[in-house]
Amino acid sequence: MDLALELSSFLGNVEQRLGGMLADGDAGPDVHGDTLMEAARHLCLGAGGKRARPLLVRLFGGAVGVAPERLVDVAVAAEMIHSSSLLHDDVVDAGMYRRARPTVNARWGNIVAVMSGDLILSTALLRLAELDARLGQSALSVVAEMTRAAIAEVEARGNLDLSLERLRYIAEGKTGSLFGWCGSAAATLAGQPEAAQRFDLFGRRLGVAFQIADDIRDVLGTDPGKPRYADVLSGTPSLPILLAVERDGSLRAKLKDAWAFTTINPERTRALGDAIEASDAVPRAIERMNQEIQGALDALGPYAHQGMGTELVDWAHKLSAGITAQARSRAA
């Protein structure tokens, strides 16, 4: 089968299984429907999700010869763990839109959003425990890491003195840890502990690069899913922001002053964002992103040339090429 068709078929099976996992459950007597699962479906199904994590599960599994049907439940669990974190993040950030539609908290309120996130997270972990106790245990560890990184991100709001090491810790915990789990889980099913270690490191470093790419898109305005300069508006010290103020004391003072207020008006947000883009922060951020990507590729070792390992390499290269092209287009 053609690779594109094979991956499309796999993701179709993931979509079908995900729909089944998010079907209405028993909400108790005298209740029609299931509000929590309805809210989960609103976020998870038909909302333009990239399905990056299920795709990674398939590629990692294909690099060590795991049959696709054995990977579907792992891929679904990865997507549900990710989705639960999005439901919680939108409450923390008071987000009103995600994937070009109202967030669950905007439509149903914070209580439903939090409890819906809890429900799909516990559903995913329970399924993993039934599938393979090792996967359930490792997933629990990842959820704990994601949670610590999420609170670290909240604590970092408005902090222009945040170290780049601390910022990387946040990116690895929020994104890289689950990317890495997608690989280690697939390798665990294959009974290949060396691959599990290599895949985990690859995923973690790729996840950090993935987060840097998102930070760069925010400055370039090339993320269709959110308004430009959202990090400036929310007081989030992204990598481009920290790199920009590192060399520009005047910009640091202006941004610090702006973040001292609860809200920033659109004109000031745009002026600050334009100053960040005009600095050398974007090319320096791309350089750091490429360092993470190279570290990820080095971690693959022999698996870079084995089965679908070549697709993992290609995916990493495409991430770098895409962001670089967007930056050049903006600079032209």
Rank of each mutant, 00 (worst) to 15 (best):
L3I: 13
L5Y: 08
L5S: 14
L7E: 13
L7P: 00
L7S: 08
L7Q: 12
S8Q: 15
S9L: 12
L11S: 07
V14F: 02
E15S: 13
G19P: 01
G20C: 05
M21E: 15
L22T: 01
L22H: 02
G25R: 14
A27L: 06
D30C: 13
D30E: 14
H32Y: 12
G33M: 07
M37W: 10
H42D: 02
L43E: 07
L45V: 12
G46Y: 04
P54S: 03
P54M: 03
V57D: 05
R58Y: 14
F60C: 13
V64N: 04
R70K: 15
L71S: 08
L71C: 10
V72W: 02
D73N: 12
D73L: 12
V76G: 06
S85C: 02
S85E: 02
D89T: 02
D90G: 05
A94P: 00
Y97D: 12
R98Q: 04
P102Y: 06
T103D: 07
T103L: 05
V104H: 08
V104Y: 04
W108T: 00
G117V: 01
D118L: 05
A124K: 03
L125C: 01
L126A: 14
D132I: 06
G136Y: 06
G136T: 05
S138W: 01
T147C: 12
N159M: 04
D161S: 13
S163R: 12
R166S: 14
R166L: 11
L167N: 08
Y169Q: 14
I170R: 08
A171I: 00
A171C: 08
G176Q: 09
L178E: 09
A185F: 07
A187K: 08
L189T: 05
G191T: 11
E194A: 11
E194S: 10
A196T: 10
F199G: 06
F199Q: 07
R204K: 14
R205P: 00
V208E: 14
A209R: 10
D214C: 07
D214W: 07
D218E: 04
D218A: 04
P227V: 09
R228V: 14
A230E: 15
A230Q: 15
S234V: 06
G235N: 09
P237D: 10
L239W: 10
A244I: 03
E246T: 01
K256V: 00
D257V: 00
W259P: 06
T263I: 10
N265H: 14
P266M: 09
T269Q: 15
T269G: 14
T269F: 01
G273A: 05
A275G: 03
I276H: 07
A278R: 13
R284P: 00
N290A: 05
G295T: 08
D298E: 15
D298F: 04
L300C: 06
L300F: 06
Y303T: 02
A304E: 06
G309T: 07
T310R: 15
D314N: 13
D314Y: 11
G322T: 13
I323R: 04
